[in-house]
């Protein structure tokens, strides 16, 4: 049970966005994928969820080959991708935004059960179920995106920059709930972040991408202590 990536390369036209990347995330681990703008983090994540096509390499989640399925199929194999920046549908209500995460299960009863679970985790969403999603604050939207993902009962969560555009205090809350939720549910997480320090603090392992290639990888605590990583990515 693990996320296993070997020699993965992705091209955007002539640009080699992801270059021969290999790493492994064990079940239940939280891995932080960090690096500067344009390092290929988002491209890598989009490839793992079927939105982008890989040039070559391997990517498996347990027995599922991540490179051969469409995103809507991968959800059925327990892989859920929350895309960059408060990925909610503003025209739909909070409740509808949550429900679309469970539509594929075609089971109204299970949907209601999941909805109640998510509302228990995020009481703020429960108070706003009938409101349109565009009336929510940035932090609430990120909770909603996370909640929608949980509605599909994921085993592997691919999170793209949940801290984007949020106030520092809110970022801390979001990181904390990501940590608490996924560890209590045994969900494996690959977290892409610009906020390297925040991500490494809650992560088990860290992977540093630079211009499409892996620069450093190791235990998150070791990376935080590493003077080179500190200087290049943590800013002090």
């Amino acid at each position: 049970m693990s996320l296993f990536i070997e020699n993965l390369s992705v091209h955007h036209g002539a640009i080699h966005a992801v270059n021969n990347v290999s790493f492994k995330v064990e079940k239940g681990q939280l891995a932080a994928l960090i690096g500067a703008n344009g390092a290929g983090k988002t491209t890598l994540l989009r490839t793992l969820s079927g939105l982008n096509k890989a040039t070559h390499g391997k990517a498996h989640w347990n027995e599922t080959n991540l490179l051969h399925e469409k995103p809507e199929q991968l959800v059925r194999h327990g892989v859920s991708h929350v895309s960059e920046g408060k990925s909610v549908i503003p025209e739909l209500t909070v409740k509808e935004n949550l429900e679309i995460g469970a539509l594929w299960r075609r089971n109204k009863k299970e949907m209601v059960v999941s909805l109640n679970e998510v509302v228990e985790l995020f009481p703020r969403l429960g108070e706003r179920l009938e409101q349109r999603a565009d009336t929510l604050s940035g932090g609430e939207r990120q909770m909603l995106a996370l909640g929608r993902s949980l509605m599909s009962k994921p085993q592997l969560l691919l999170l793209d920059e949940p801290s984007l555009g949020l106030a520092p205090l809110v970022v801390e809350q979001i990181f904390q709930s990501i940590k608490d939720l996924t560890s209590s549910m045994g969900i494996t997480v690959l977290l892409v972040e610009q906020n390297a320090m925040g991500a490494l603090k809650i992560a088990d392992i860290g992977i540093v991408l630079n211009l499409g290639s892996i620069a450093v990888t190791g235990d998150a605590s070791a990376l935080i202590a590493d003077p080179q990583v500190r200087a290049a990515y943590l800013g002090y």
């Binding site: 969820s49 939105l51 469409k70 995103p71 809507e72 959800v75 059925r76 859920s80 991708h81 929350v82 895309s83 990925s87 909610v88 549908i89 503003p90 025209e91 739909l92 509808e96 429900e99 679309i100 995460g101 539509l103 594929w104 075609r106 109204k108 929608r148 599909s152």
Partner: peptide, 24 residues
């Protein structure tokens, strides 16, 4: 209906709908 929700979600945001498991 759920079909209607899928129709609206796919119209507004095809990529998010896909990632949510809807066969857009």
């Amino acid at each position: 209906t759920n079909l209607g929700l899928a129709l609206r979600a796919s119209a507004y945001a095809p990529e998010i709908s896909r990632l949510a498991g809807i066969k857009v």
